[in-house]
């Protein structure tokens, strides 16, 4: 019974950590991308930065946060956020930029403002790509949130590491099974929502 409560608490902590980071990542990246629509320099800067972060191994990103901001929940959130930026940014960027230029031209030509071009042309075109990015980022956040237990992020990762150091199989499973379940659930539910969000013209 004690262990059930413990698992539940750790799972909630894990979810809270991972998705606070994801939410902040989304809140940071999407406005940045919208701004970079009108600023080629900013666009290339953002892309380079997120590509760089992606190239660094997850473990190193998590570790390097410690000397910079210390340990605990906030550094863990920041580490996860840095890792999920790339899928969010890259997909949003691709979605917003890869629009048939003649669509943009005709939309402007009939008298849409810049904002309306984003609202009615670019964003609808980008939804599927943005959503795929969020799906990937959510799964990534789930796995990095395990690693951040090492820097005091808590959650299921703590249980797993504890179990590993003590050769406690029950603890290891108590930590890993929820993580796996979360991953499977994410994949399944996001696929459902993805299908539901995909515009009619893209479904065959």
């Amino acid at each position: 019974m004690v262990i059930t409560v413990e698992i539940l608490e750790a799972t909630l902590e894990h979810l809270f950590l991972a998705y606070t980071a994801l939410l902040i990542g989304a809140l940071v990246s999407i406005p940045l991308i919208l701004l970079s629509l009108y600023n080629a320099k900013l666009a290339s800067l953002i892309m380079r930065f997120s590509n760089l972060v992606q190239a660094v191994p997850s473990f190193a990103v998590v570790a390097v946060v410690v000397p910079l901001i210390g340990i605990g929940f906030t550094p863990a959130v920041i580490a996860i956020m840095l890792r999920v930026l790339l899928p969010l940014i890259k997909n949003t960027y691709i979605g917003l930029f890869n629009v048939d230029p003649s669509l943009i031209e005709s939309a402007k030509g009939i008298g849409l403002t810049e904002f309306q071009v984003i609202r009615y042309v670019r964003l609808p075109n980008a939804y599927p790509a943005i959503f795929a990015g969020i799906k990937f980022a959510a799964i990534l956040a789930n796995s990095i949130a395990v690693l951040t237990a090492l820097i005091g992020g808590g959650g299921l990762g703590s249980m797993i590491f504890e179990g590993l150091t003590n050769f406690n199989t029950t603890k290891i499973l108590a930590g890993t099974l929820p993580v796996i379940a979360i991953a499977l659930f994410l994949d399944f539910s996001f696929s459902k929502i993805e299908h539901w969000l995909t515009p009619v013209y893209l479904q065959k």
């Binding site: 048939d100 003649s102 669509l103 031209e105 005709s106 939309a107 402007k108 030509g109 009939i110 008298g111 849409l112 403002t113 009615y120 042309v121 609808p124 075109n125 515009p199 009619v200 013209y201």
Partner: peptide, 19 residues
């Protein structure tokens, strides 16, 4: 924007919004 809304504009690729 006002100007363009007062001028009909048709192009070869039509540019209907697919969604």
């Amino acid at each position: 924007v006002r100007l363009r809304r007062n001028i009909g504009y048709v192009i070869q690729n039509i540019g209907l919004l697919p969604h």
